[in-house]
């Protein structure tokens, strides 16, 4: 499959403000480094998709450990974190965390202040699509990155549509660069 910066679902034509495609993982690393309060929202597909050397959730945990970013697990995926020995993830439905993040006065899960960067991974394409659209329109205080395999035009940054192999390569590269810096 050729990498294309267009929506994965054909009819999900995006609007007037569109995501920048993440061709190099350095973009994601730089955004995380620049962020004062990043948060990762992790859907159930992060634990159900098999990549060659792990599941997306394994890379998410590494990113969280390297950056100290807060994780919010949605649906039933929290158990997958605890099974992997990662015990500082919170959990709530994607709609709940989205609702809180859109509130500029929300002080975060730990009460330490609002988040400035939201990274999403592991959702049905269309569910992430509308969630990101909500952020785009109603949360100007947030930057958003989709770490999913498919291009999400409502994010600020998103991978183009990539193969599972390329996706894993990107995730690994992000982890590697976070370790190096």
């Amino acid at each position: 499959m050729i990498a294309r910066a267009e929506p994965w679902q054909t009819a999900e034509v995006s609007g007037l403000t569109r995501a920048l495609p993440v061709i190099k993982p350095e973009v994601v690393v730089a955004a995380i480094k620049k962020s004062k309060r990043p948060i990762l929202i992790v859907g159930h597909e992060a634990a159900s998709v098999d990549l060659e050397q792990g599941k997306p959730i394994d890379y998410v945990i590494q990113i969280a450990e390297l950056t100290g970013a807060q994780i919010v697990a949605t649906a039933h995926v929290i158990g997958e974190f605890t099974q992997r020995g990662f015990n500082r993830a919170s959990w709530m439905p994607i709609m709940d965390i989205s609702n809180r993040l859109r509130d500029p006065n929300w002080q975060g899960l730990d009460g330490q202040g609002r988040y400035d960067l939201v990274l999403l991974i592991g959702f049905q394409y269309y569910l992430e699509w509308v969630t990101l659209s909500g952020f785009k329109h109603f949360a100007p205080h947030l930057k958003t990155i989709s770490l999913g395999r498919y291009h999400q035009p409502h994010a600020n940054w998103s991978f183009p549509n990539v193969t599972p192999v390329d996706w894993e390569r990107q995730l690994k590269s992000i982890v590697k660069q976070l370790k190096e810096k």
Binding site: G15, L16, T17, R102, V130, S133, G134, H137, P140
Partner: peptide, 23 residues
């Protein structure tokens, strides 16, 4: 209400399409 816009614009009248993004 928490809104999740499906479209960035409105096209219901001939003054549009209107760009409704970001305020």
């Amino acid at each position: 209400p928490m809104y999740l816009p499906y479209c960035d614009s409105c096209c219901l009248c001939t003054m549009g399409k209107c760009d409704l993004t970001q305020g």
